[in-house]
Design a protein around this nucleic acid. Structure first.
Lengths: 271, 271
DNA sequence: GAGTGGTCTAGACCACTTT
DNA sequence: AAGTGGTCTAGACCACTCG
């Protein structure tokens, strides 16, 4: 396994260049699932970097879930498919685009409303604070998929009402115009039966199964920015996602301590 | 902010001890959301470790989502609640225990069956390979919550049929007896209406809303270990989970390269 | 015993933000 | 100018796995 030489003049960090070269090898199939990637020493010697830099590149691949390490054995390519359609914090527009469908909207309502208690609480806003409410029917290739109702504090995007084309991507506008980038979202998913009104808007039979999403999206700092309540047709919409096993030390610190060193020493997993 | 001295004799890594001390400060409320945690220099000087070790501790907190960094400013506590009930790769038993409910099972079927094509493909097993099938009704505090049907290749746990008490935790047995630890799972969620048979088993009305989960759980190496199809009552079961915005470089490497240095240099985000 | 990843040190230069 | 995190170096010792 020979990696292409690094560009020492570039502003791109060395470890990042190494990461990308390894990622290319994996994408191209030169490195397959279960196979070992070059060791820290090999990379360090082969590319003329320090071992810590090589290590940082390998660590970043592990963090991405692309590889995994076995102490004393090496670093190996995971069996995960890179192109997996995992659900992310995506706007409807982005999600449909990723599936090759044309996203569109019918705007039912776009106005300023005072925050009711539940939404204010979720957004850490004052009760009654002005929110921009955007109520839309979401279409994929002209077929109604869901009803979405978003609330965003007006102070974060003062002139959104005047400038936003409500049929386009809200996330893109927030990012480009206000520098607001969603980093994560907490969501509750329920399954229910379509009410008469929902059924009419979605053009399905009353009593059809639907998903109800209640989502709060936040920026990196953890500040909540958007509250969305959505109803989606279950006949045309499935959820594909990946669950990971989190670190117990975060959730159960007390029990972990009881286990003592024997457990902790071998695997202080952080990533 | 003064952190307790480190135990230099312990087998627990220094960076991990530092991570735990900071985590304690955050849990106790001594460090609140938005506040800066001690800088790398402060920690290094205060605890007598190298800056790289202090850095490793801070990096691990960022990876956990507990903190975030701002270049030139510092490291800050995220607004995320630590105790959040995020959905993980949890068995039913673990999930109910986490909610303070007593998990139980009625076993409908526990036997060896040949793999049908769909399941064989998901588990990367040969068609017809012997699988252990475990079909159970899941109860929380004696109330039926869902119907679960798991399939596991028999070669991974040869004597499971003889030794496993089918009313207990499958994941716990797999871990303790066979060293099989689930690391992640890919899942498809659908919303549907309960069939007559499902309704009867779950003691709900026919046509009630239900979730249908199709899950493939894997170990760290990416090897698929378990295929589960479940039907859960939507009136007693909601899904709470966190979506994260993944790294674009993994999914859209081509577009990223077009952006050039200006973007890449400032934020080669990996975690 | 050779090779691997895990941890740790004591420096260094840089870009960035704040004062 | 001072402080911050981001990157990088050239070493070191350790526990682990494998032949």
């Amino acid at each position: 396994m020979v990696l292409a030489a690094l560009d020492r003049c570039s502003v791109i960090p060395l470890y990042y260049q190494i990461q990308q070269r390894l990622l290319d090898q994996i994408r191209s199939g030169a490195l397959k699932s279960g196979q070992p990637v070059p060791s820290e020493q090999e990379i360090a010697a082969g590319l003329g970097v320090s071992r810590m830099t090589a290590r940082q590149a390998l660590k970043s691949l592990c963090d991405l879930g692309v590889t995994y390490t076995q102490r004393g054995r090496g670093t190996f390519v995971s069996a995960n498919k890179l192109e997996k359609n995992i659900r992310q914090v995506l706007s409807f527009t982005e999600e449909m685009r990723a599936r090759g469908l044309r996203a569109d909207s019918n705007v039912l309502c776009f106005e300023t409303v005072p925050a009711v208690a539940e939404i204010a609480s979720a957004l850490h806003a004052a009760s009654g604070e002005p929110l921009i409410k955007l109520h839309r029917i979401r279409l994929a290739d002209s077929c109604p998929m869901g009803i979405e109702c978003s609330y965003i504090p007006q102070r974060l995007c003062p002139d959104l009402l005047r400038t936003f084309d409500a049929s386009t991507s809200l996330y893109q506008t927030l990012s480009e115009r206000y520098g607001i980038q969603m980093a994560f979202a907490d969501e509750v998913i329920e399954a229910a039966l379509a009410s008469a009104k929902e059924a009419c808007l979605l053009r399905i039979a009353k009593g059809s199964p639907v998903f109800i999403f209640t989502r709060v999206s936040s920026v990196q700092s953890g500040q909540a920015v958007e509250y969305v309540k959505s109803t989606y047709r279950a006949d045309r919409y499935k959820i594909a996602h990946r669950l990971t096993r989190l670190n117990r030390e975060l959730l159960y610190p007390a029990e972990l301590k009881e286990l003592g060193n024997a457990q902790v020493r071998t695997a202080p997993v952080d990533g």
